[in-house]
C-alpha cells in the first residue's frame, strides 16, 4: 500500500502542477498537453514516455487496490463474529474511516475522469477540440453537477491522502516518536495543497474566471 501509494502521490503532484498551467492561458495549457506526448523526442518515438508512465500508473493503481482488497478480506476473516455493541472509534478520526469506501468512490471517479478527459467519451466537446476547450466545456456553469462531482471526489482524495501519507511512513518503518509531529504536518500540508490545487481548475471554470 505504502509504495504504490507513494507512486500515486508523486503522480498527483505532477498532475496538479500541469492542471494549474490552465491559468497561464489556452496556448500554454495546450502546449503543455502536447509536450506530454512529445516528451523524450527525438530519442524515443511520439508518446513513448507518456505510455510508459501510464502503464506504470495502472500497475500502481492495480497493486494498490489488490493490497487494499486482500487486507479487507483478511480483516473480515479475522473477525467472523461481530460485536453486538455499537462500534466505537476512539482513534485518528474521520479520514481513517473513509479509506476503504473513499477508495472505491475515488476509483469510480477515476473511471469517469478517464472517460471524460482521456478518451473524450463523456466530454461535451469530444476528441476534435483542444484540451483547453474540453476542460472549459466540462465545467461550464450549466454543468454544475459535474463540477460538484469533481469537488466531492477531490475532497475524498484529500482525506485519503491525509491518512495515507502518514500511514505510508508508518508502514515503511520510517516513523518514530521523534518525527511523529513532522509527519503529521507533512501529510496534512501535502493533502491540503493537492486538494486546493485540484479544486482550483474546475471551480475557476464554473465561476467564469477561466473561459
Amino acid at each position: 500500500m505504502a509504495v504504490t501509494g507513494g507512486v500515486l502521490v508523486l503522480f498527483l503532484v505532477a498532475h496538479m502542477v500541469g492542471n494549474l498551467k490552465i491559468f497561464m492561458g489556452a496556448e500554454d495549457f495546450n502546449h503543455y498537453a502536447h509536450w506530454l506526448r512529445t516528451m523524450g523526442e527525438p530519442a524515443v518515438p511520439y508518446r513513448t514516455l507518456l505510455t510508459v508512465l501510464e502503464v506504470g500508473l495502472v500497475v500502481a493503481v492495480v497493486l494498490h487496490m489488490w493490497s487494499a482488497v486482500s487486507l479487507a478480506r483478511r480483516a473480515r476473516a479475522a473477525r467472523p463474529v461481530k460485536y453486538e455493541a455499537k462500534k466505537k472509534s476512539h482513534a485518528h478520526g474521520y479520514a481513517t474511516h473513509t479509506m476503504r469506501y473513499g477508495g472505491v468512490i475515488i476509483l469510480l471517479f477515476i473511471i469517469w475522469h478517464l472517460l471524460d478527459l482521456t478518451f473524450f467519451v463523456v466530454n461535451p466537446k469530444g476528441g476534435d477540440a483542444s484540451p483547453y476547450e474540453r476542460v472549459v466545456a466540462d465545467f461550464a456553469p450549466e454543468r454544475w453537477y459535474i463540477t460538484l462531482f469533481y469537488v466531492v471526489a477531490v475532497l475524498l482524495v484529500g482525506l485519503h491522502l491525509w491518512h495515507g501519507i502518514w500511514s505510508a511512513f508508518q508502514s515503511l518503518g520510517l516513523r518514530s516518536l521523534r518525527n511523529e509531529h513532522t509527519l503529521r504536518v507533512l501529510a496534512l500540508t501535502v493533502s491540503v495543497v493537492l486538494t486546493l490545487g485540484f479544486l482550483a481548475v474546475p471551480l475557476a471554470v464554473t465561476f467564469g474566471w477561466v473561459s
Partner: peptide
C-alpha cells in the same frame, strides 16, 4: 488480520 494503521 493485517494492520492498516487505524490507531484503535
Amino acid at each position: 488480520g493485517g494492520c492498516t494503521n487505524t490507531g484503535e
